[in-house]
Design a protein around this nucleic acid. Structure first.
Length: 154
DNA sequence: GCCAACGTTGGC
DNA sequence: GCCAACGTTGGC
């Protein structure tokens, strides 16, 4: 089992929205970056655990945890002309955007804020805090996972 | 709103 | 292949 971090803007889709989907979970749609797509398509496995990270908000940070329940999911929004994620160059015969479905697992007791992550020496290697990082899907090491759990459960 | 740090697009 | 222009991300 591997660990990951997914970014989301809580104004658009928050961990509470994911919680409200219940056991049905939610397709992680809208990823339109090839590096991120490749991780979703090629590296994520069922039962992998995912930090849900709230970005572009007043207090950015890891809010909670989700679990991968389905892989190789064709992002349906690429075929929806009314969607902001519509991709007219993708075809049902050869879909370009593949993603996963996740289900809510739990909130951290308190969010592990970006500020607190930056203040912890053992987390300075996280891709999240690396200069210029903009990927919305990031790998997390076992040690980083444990450290952030600790940050969020004090 | 500002702006740095990207990724993408398209002319050449 | 080069590179300028443009769009996006996301912290602050």
């Amino acid at each position: 089992m591997s660990f990951w971090l997914f970014k989301t803007e809580p104004d658009t889709f928050s961990i509470d929205d994911l919680k409200n989907r219940g056991a049905h979970g939610e397709i992680w749609d809208g990823v339109r970056n090839y590096q991120a797509r490749n991780m979703l398509r090629d590296l994520l496995r069922i039962d992998d655990r995912v930090f849900i990270y709230h970005s572009n908000c007043s207090v950015p940070g890891v809010a909670g945890i989700a679990r991968v329940i389905e892989t190789g999911v064709i992002d349906p929004t690429q075929f929806h002309p009314e969607s902001k994620y519509f991709d007219p160059t993708s075809t049902p015969e050869s879909p370009r955007w593949i993603t996963v479905k996740v289900v809510y697992e739990k909130h951290l007791d308190a969010p592990a804020t970006l500020a607190s992550i930056k203040s912890h020496p053992e987390l300075q290697d996280m891709q999240l805090v690396k200069r210029g990082n903009r990927l919305s899907i990031l790998p997390v090491t076992d040690d980083q996972w444990k450290s952030i759990l600790h940050l969020g459960n004090t």
